[in-house]
Design a protein around this nucleic acid. Structure first.
Length: 423
RNA sequence: GUGGGUGUGGCCUAAGGGUUAGGGCACCUGGUUGUGGCCCAGGAGAGUGUGGGUUCGAGUCCCACCAUCCACCCCA
């Protein structure tokens, strides 16, 4: 036997049965974004490797060990996007979008790729719904992104979410904080795990979200970054929190929240859900005021969020949230004999042009078999074309749910079905 | 990269080391002339993830690899 092909590790086939979730979630998210004035942008699935290395940060896990990087036939190093923001900001710069009315609000949906060990809620190819506001430093922009993502989950009916918020400062104040943190940790070097000793040298902020038991007391007593923000960052953060309080949106101030992408400045946030395993974050986002400049563009503040669609769907299933089924073909066309088959072909074409979803029987089978098929496909009406009906210039139409059948003159058939099916 | 669990038709699952791997769901056909769901009958579909080994004999035991799930790590 031929060796069977399998999907690559960490990828998934999204079968028809799953599509109601996907369609519902993405449509809901898109409607939400458009309502707030976001426009759609599609950026390439692969970009120059350097874009991600510079944008996300060369020492981040994403860049260091999670990228799908390859060399194309022209010898260029390309990488499957591990996230949207770098590509969207690149597109903003490259297409001169800074001359448009600012800010520019953009949303995207699509697959992203990270070479990671799969587990519950973690895949190598997964999908994100992404929103970015470029060219605006007002904390109201941060607020808008957060409110929209909040409304997304609320609108889908999510319960038991936890909104985690922090500020990571900016290049002016962060180095000072890192120094303070390092000094604090030096004093407790004997009380922390080995990983953290390494982190301290490479990416000190990461010690804050260490999960090792030994490190917990040290982290709990660590100086919070929010006590070491510069005036500008402190003001920004205070205003954002003020708006959130004003609107009564609950959030948890989490001074341990350190995101794995280096471009963040000031605001960072994540939303956590319960019941979907260890990978609880359903979205993550924040402000990245230095990114555009780091990518060679004009200084442009920005703030954005990315939500993982697979995880959203996992939450929906865990919380037993229903989604509407996708429509089945309304009409099944059964036919008996050659003449009827030819008439069926013509009729199916006419009905579809008129906007009626039609499934036609293939092959040359008995009516019983065709009826069985119509039932399994969930057709509301079965149009039966046979010699008798053709002779009378009519078709039998059976209402499957009501088990009632009527004969409809051929010339009235299309409008009759259109009206009933709502096409 | 590390650790643990699992691996029998499309899906779920049975088989105390011993006849041609059993069943359920789903699928197909039929139960008289052209009518679905329920029911009945029949049919097709796997040699048990892959490769080695132990044994007279392996789906059952051992080893390796692969896949998958879960966890670490990191995040969506």
């Amino acid at each position: 036997m031929m060796p069977r092909f399998q999907r690559p590790t960490g990828t998934h086939d999204i079968l028809p049965e799953e599509q109601p979730y996907w369609e519902y979630v993405t449509e809901f998210a898109v409607r939400l974004a458009r309502r707030a004035g976001f426009e759609r942008i599609d950026v390439p699935i692969f970009e120059a490797t350097e874009l991600f290395a510079r944008g996300i940060g060369a020492t981040t896990d994403v860049v260091e060990k999670e990228m799908y990087t390859f060399t194309d036939k022209g010898g260029e190093s390309l990488t499957l996007r591990p996230e949207f923001t770098a590509g969207v900001v690149r597109a903003y710069i490259e297409n001169g979008m800074h001359v448009r009315p600012q800010p520019v609000k953009l949303y995207s949906v699509g697959p992203v790729f990270r070479y990671d060990r799969p587990q519950a809620g973690r895949f190598r190819q997964f999908h994100q719904f992404n929103m970015e506001i470029l060219g605006e430093m007002d904390p109201l922009a941060d607020l808008e992104v957060m409110l929209l993502i909040w409304d997304l989950y609320a609108g889908l009916g999510f319960r038991d979410l936890s909104f985690q918020l922090n500020s990571t400062g900016c290049p002016r104040c962060r180095p000072g904080y890192v120094q303070v943190l390092k000094e604090y940790y030096e004093k407790h070097i004997g009380e922390i795990c080995e990983d953290c000793r390494r982190r301290l040298a490479r990416n000190p902020l990461r010690v804050l979200d260490c999960k090792a038991d030994v490190c917990q007391p040290v982290i709990a007593a660590a100086p919070p970054i929010t006590d070491h923000l510069c005036d500008e960052c402190a003001d920004h953060f205070a205003r954002l929190r003020g708006y959130l309080d004003l609107l009564g949106r609950p959030y948890t101030l989490n001074h341990r929240l350190v995101r794995g992408l280096d471009y963040y400045t000031k605001t960072v946030f994540e939303v956590w859900a319960a019941g979907i395993g260890a990978q609880a974050a359903v979205c993550g986002g924040g402000r990245y005021d230095g990114l555009a400049e780091a990518l060679g563009g004009p200084p442009t503040p920005g703030v954005g969020v990315a939500a993982g669609i697979e995880r959203i769907i996992m939450v929906m299933k865990a919380q037993e949230l229903e989604v509407p089924p996708l429509p089945a073909p309304a009409v099944f066309l059964a036919h008996l004999g050659d003449r009827a088959r030819r008439e069926a072909v013509r009729l199916a074409d006419e009905l579809r042009r008129a906007g009626v979803a039609v499934w036609t029987a293939f092959g040359d089978r008995g009516l019983k078999s065709q009826m069985r098929e119509a039932d399994k496909r969930g057709a509301r009406y079965v149009v039966i074309l046979g010699e008798d009906e053709l002779a009378r210039g009519a078709a039998a139409v059976r209402d499957m749910a009501a088990s009632e059948q009527a004969e409809i003159p051929m010339e009235e058939l299309v409008p009759w079905l259109r009206q009933r099916v709502g096409a």
